[in-house]
Nucleic acid binder design. Structure first.
Length: 424
RNA sequence: GGAGAGGUGGCUGAGUGGUCGAAAGCACUGGUUUUGAAAACCAGCGACGGGUUAAACCGUCCCAGGGUUCGAAUCCCUGCCUCUCCGCCA
């Protein structure tokens, strides 16, 4: 959520900035709402003041044993007027809030212009795509024939966009999770957390999935109104919702492994083959809550943590900066890590690292207490995948394939695989 | 699932209709004292919005949402959560 004070003061400037990401802010409606709100707020407060003053004197009169009936007569219509004013005010506040909740974050100046992913800007590459003296296969051809990956059973159990994994592939999948968590906790300084996979609407509003993107979520039947998490970002970031953190405790760094559930509405026909786009997948997530002045440095650090995982696995990748039109609703800036997939002969997204500035923190009322002044200020939040497990598995399988269809196991994972060197 | 008890500031905890945003203690901050520290003493100490150069000042907030009343932390209703006992369960 944007700072309403800033919005009031610089509405045209902000509208211009938002246009860069293809969002049209209705300046006229907002200004009208805001003017009405201001007026109503003043009259409501005046009426409240009057009520308080008069009620106090009634109390005092009564204590002295005076006749309070004349005083009561004086306030006869006050209640009604006040109630009407309060209701009008809360209605307009709700309207403004709704509008505000639907406005995306402001972009950082360094975010390049552009409309779609075609306009994203490559920052750097790491590693060389492997060359094969045979025609490399994709992960489905490598995994499906021997039952490592079983998409048909998943259809039987549930439906499309799910998978069953067996034997060595299931173990490799699990090994990736352990390896990433271990790296983040031992080398990068994160605290591992275990969190609920079902969350309430407050949490989803806090990180920005609601109210706008309900269609991407799985909602549970039942009166609680719970949703399956689309990413660990939601429960982990919301850990600080409503909190005031002491400055010396920052930055908070959390990592979590969770399954993620996405309905991927609107993606029909896209990536229908294989593991790339599933309704359920595993992810190891990194989340940081930091001081505002540090967040841009922390984004680079966070990105480095995700890159480190890919480097340790020996997977070639590139870093791209998402352009204005492709940057997500809540993010001020996002780097995607794209891993090389020989089966598709292209780089595919495997991690997304974002700085949200105070956008999520404002929605969550997540603050910290400044040591110098004792005042509170909004935190900045960041998160990044470190990494998406399913896609990492795809990358390992495709990059480490051999002519006979076996898969070499990356050095770093072997201790997690009982010392085995080849998946067979 | 059944029965009961509760949810008050960073923490403990008083407050059952009238200057209560809320006693007291702890913690914290500043000061006095001390060679230094501790102790003692004095003072300060919630969040958010409006207002002000800054204050003063005004408003809102005592789990959440409704309601009763001139007036609600206090009474009523609903929801959520916590605790105790019983049942069930991994």
């Amino acid at each position: 959520m944007l700072d309403i004070k800033r919005l009031r003061a610089n509405i045209d400037d902000i509208a211009t900035q938002l246009r860069r990401r293809g969002f049209e802010l209705d300046v006229t409606i907002f200004s009208e709402l805001e003017a009405r709100r201001k007026k109503l707020s003043v009259t409501t407060q005046e009426l409240q003041n009057e009520r308080n003053t008069r009620s106090r004197s009634i109390g005092q009169a009564k204590a002295k044993g005076e006749d309070i009936q004349p005083l009561l007569d004086q306030v006869a219509d006050l209640g009604g007027r006040l109630k009407a004013a309060e209701e009008a005010l809360s209605a307009i506040n709700a309207e403004i809030q709704d509008m505000l909740m639907g406005v995306p974050n402001l972009l950082h100046d360094s975010v390049p212009d552009g409309k779609s992913e075609d306009d994203n800007v490559e920052v750097r590459r790491w590693g060389e795509p492997p060359s094969f003296d045979f025609e490399p296969r994709d992960h489905v051809d490598l995994g499906a024939p021997n039952g490592w990956m079983d998409f048909e059973s998943a259809v039987k159990l549930t439906g499309s966009r799910f998978v069953v994994m067996r034997g060595a592939m299931a173990r490799l999948h699990r090994a990736l999770i352990q390896f990433m968590l271990d790296t983040h906790t031992r080398e990068h300084g994160y605290t591992e957390v275990y969190v609920p996979y079902l969350v309430n609407t407050d949490s989803l509003e806090g990180t920005g999935q609601l109210p706008k993107f309900e269609a991407d979520l799985f909602k549970l039947q039942g009166e609680q109104g719970y949703y399956l998490i689309p990413t660990a970002e939601v429960p982990v970031t919301n850990l600080v919702r409503g909190d005031i953190i002491e400055e010396q405790a920052l930055p908070l760094m959390y990592t979590a492994h969770t399954p993620c559930f996405r309905s991927e509405a609107g993606s029909y026909g896209k990536d229908t083959r294989g593991l790339i786009r599933q309704h359920q997948f595993e992810k190891v997530e990194m989340v940081q809550m930091v001081k505002p002045e540090e967040s841009w440095d922390r984004l680079e650090v966070l990105l480095g943590h995700a890159e480190n995982i890919l480097q340790k696995l020996g997977l070639p990748y590139r870093v791209v900066t998402l352009c204005a039109g492709d940057t997500g609703f809540s993010a001020a800036k996002t780097y995607d890590l794209e891993v090389w997939l020989p089966g598709q002969d292209t780089y595919r997204e495997i991690s997304s690292c974002s700085n949200f500035g105070d956008f999520q923190a404002r929605r969550m009322m997540a603050r910290y207490r400044q040591k110098e002044t004792g005042k509170t200020a909004l935190l900045h939040t960041l998160n990044g995948s470190g990494l998406a497990i399913g896609r990492t598995l795809v990358a390992v399988v495709e990059n480490y394939q051999q002519a006979d269809g076996s898969i070499r196991i990356p050095e770093i994972l072997r201790t997690y695989m009982g010392g085995e060197e080849v998946l067979s």
